[in-house]
Simulated assay, not measured.
Amino acid sequence: MFGSRRGEDSSATCPACGEAVDRTDAREYDKYGNRWERAEKEFEYLCKPCHRDLCHQPRQGLEAALVECEAGDADRETFLTQFLETATADEAER
């Protein structure tokens, strides 16, 4: 396609596996799930194998739930317990 518009680096690191990939060999990823609204966003780039492994279903509210459950900060057991409680409560509200 076209070259970089902002003089960005032509390589990226896949956040899923840590592999360094050329941007032309990567897939743009928007953690908020709406890559079409581009204003003032920074995107991550997944390598093609990791992108294929993603679930491409809507994930409205997922980012907020992860933040609420302290993803990346809490230990695994605490995070999973909090996430399960949050997901169960959300399901009960529907």
Rank of each mutant, 00 (worst) to 15 (best):
L46A: 03
A74E: 05
L54P: 00
A26W: 02
H56G: 11
C69I: 03
D73R: 13
H56K: 07
D53F: 00
R76G: 01
T86A: 09
R76W: 12
R38G: 06
A71H: 10
G3Q: 09
A12N: 03
W36Q: 12
L46T: 02
E42H: 12
D30L: 04
C50F: 04
H56V: 01
E19M: 11
D73Q: 10
G33N: 06
R38H: 08
T13V: 15
Q82F: 03
D53K: 10
R94N: 06
Q57G: 08
S10W: 05
N34T: 08
C17T: 03
A12Q: 02
Q57K: 13
P58T: 09
V67S: 04
H56W: 13
G3R: 13
T81N: 12
L80P: 02
R38K: 14
Y32T: 13
R59A: 15
E85H: 10
T81R: 13
R5L: 11
S10C: 11
A71L: 12
N34P: 01
E40P: 00
R38A: 10
V67D: 07
R59L: 04
G7F: 09
D53L: 07
P58M: 10
E63I: 08
T24A: 14
E85V: 00
Y45E: 01
C69T: 03
Y32D: 14
A20D: 12
A20K: 15
C50V: 12
Y45T: 04
E8N: 15
L80I: 07
E91W: 07
C17F: 03
G72W: 07
R23H: 12
C14P: 11
R52K: 15
A26M: 08
L46D: 03
R27T: 03
Y29G: 02
A92S: 09
C17R: 01
A26K: 02
E70S: 09
G61V: 10
G7I: 09
L46P: 00
C69R: 02
E44V: 06
F79L: 12
F83G: 01
A92T: 04
P49F: 09
E28D: 01
E42F: 04
C50L: 11
E77N: 13
G61T: 09
R23E: 08
L80N: 13
C47N: 05
Q82E: 10
F43C: 05
S10D: 15
D9F: 02
T86R: 13
K41P: 02
E8V: 10
R59D: 14
R5K: 10
C14M: 10
M1C: 12
A74Y: 05
R59N: 14
A89I: 00
A89R: 14
Y32N: 13
G7K: 10
S10H: 08
F83Y: 15
G72L: 06
H51I: 04
K48C: 02
R23G: 09
L54K: 08
G61L: 08
R76L: 11
L66Y: 06
D90M: 06
A65T: 05
T78G: 05
K48W: 01
